[in-house]
């Protein structure tokens, strides 16, 4: 019976690893455009790509550790199941050198991950796209249960307070592609979180704070935008779209949106 259990636990680990291995081909992996036959989606922002790379680095380390520990676990279980009645049990209270090894080696690996990832965090929160380099394109205000978005008029910069010529949309965030942009994230009521899965970007919208979020989008198309922080019964339906278009199209869209918004019905259309 003991051998059965040794196999049982090893089998569970094998199945777990196998499931992760085939998961991408069933769409159970990162969302985003699929590249190649593997089935893993590729992030559509440069920070997203760095996040993915970091994820894969951690995944490799973790997978090796998982397989290693379960191989050893399987071995000790098998050995303990097949020990003969006359065989002596290993009477040991531990091993100083083993303790030292398995303290230092994991500590080194953990420190390595810790130091390695600082750069990516810095890129997301401090460096590269500092607010000076990234154009503030919109103010995004979450409320139960929708997103309200305010853009400065074409050619103007985003002001902290609403301006008469600002352009508004609801549940559609338009941004230009190919360069860093930033949004000012706010909430009108409770806490929400701005989450665009395909860009790997997430930031809580905190009552009373205005938080800048920087990112770039590499491909002009629509991306789903969701709320990731419980905000009430309608949390699951704060469905919105991030619409990324080229720079020219972005300007053109803004003109059109402004025209629609300020058309009071009295003026005859031009001509």
């Amino acid at each position: 019976m003991g051998r059965f259990w040794a196999v049982f636990f090893v089998a569970s680990a094998v199945i777990a690893v196998g499931l992760c291995w085939v998961a991408p081909s069933y769409g159970l992996w990162f969302p985003g455009t699929l590249k190649g036959g593997f089935g893993a989606g590729v992030a559509h922002s440069s920070i997203g790509k760095k996040i993915d790379d970091l994820f894969y680095l951690v995944l490799v380390i973790v997978a090796v550790t998982y397989i290693g520990t379960h191989a050893v676990l399987g071995y000790v279980l098998w050995r303990g199941a097949t020990i003969k009645p006359e065989e002596k049990v290993l009477f040991s209270h531990g091993s100083h050198s083993l303790e030292v090894i398995w303290t230092i080696v994991p500590a080194g690996i953990l420190l390595y991950i810790a130091l390695y990832q600082m750069d990516v965090w810095a890129a997301y929160r401090f460096k590269e796209f500092s607010p000076k380099k990234a154009e503030a394109v919109a103010e995004v205000t979450a409320r139960q249960f929708e997103w309200r978005i305010r853009y400065p008029a074409r050619g103007k910069t985003l002001m902290p307070t609403p301006q008469p010529d600002d352009v508004y949309t609801v549940n559609e965030l338009h941004v230009p592609t190919g360069r860093p942009v930033s949004i000012s994230l706010k909430t009108e009521d409770v806490q929400h979180a701005f989450f665009v899965p395909e860009l790997r970007i997430k930031q809580d919208a905190v009552p009373g704070l205005t938080i800048p979020v920087w990112f770039d989008v590499d491909e002009p198309r629509q991306y789903e935008m969701v709320c990731a922080e419980l905000c009430g019964w309608g949390h699951y339906k704060m469905k919105a779209r991030l619409i990324a278009v080229s720079d020219e199209d972005f300007g053109a869209w803004k003109d059109k949106a402004a025209l629609e918004q300020f058309d009071d019905g009295f003026k005859k259309p031009a001509e």
Binding site: F9, S12, A13, A16, I47, G48, K50, I51, L54, F55, V58, L59, I61, V62, T65, Y66, T69, H70, L73, L110, I113, Q117, V120, W121, Y124, A193, F195, P197, R200, I201, K202, A228, E229
Partner: peptide, 25 residues
């Protein structure tokens, strides 16, 4: 023991702050 290994290892993904940006919540 076996389940704790999985739970501990998944903690490492989340402790890597940039990865947590994506997998938080």
């Amino acid at each position: 023991v076996s389940m704790f290994i999985i739970g501990g290892l998944s903690g490492i993904f989340m402790a890597a702050v940039p990865v947590d940006i994506y997998i938080h919540d």
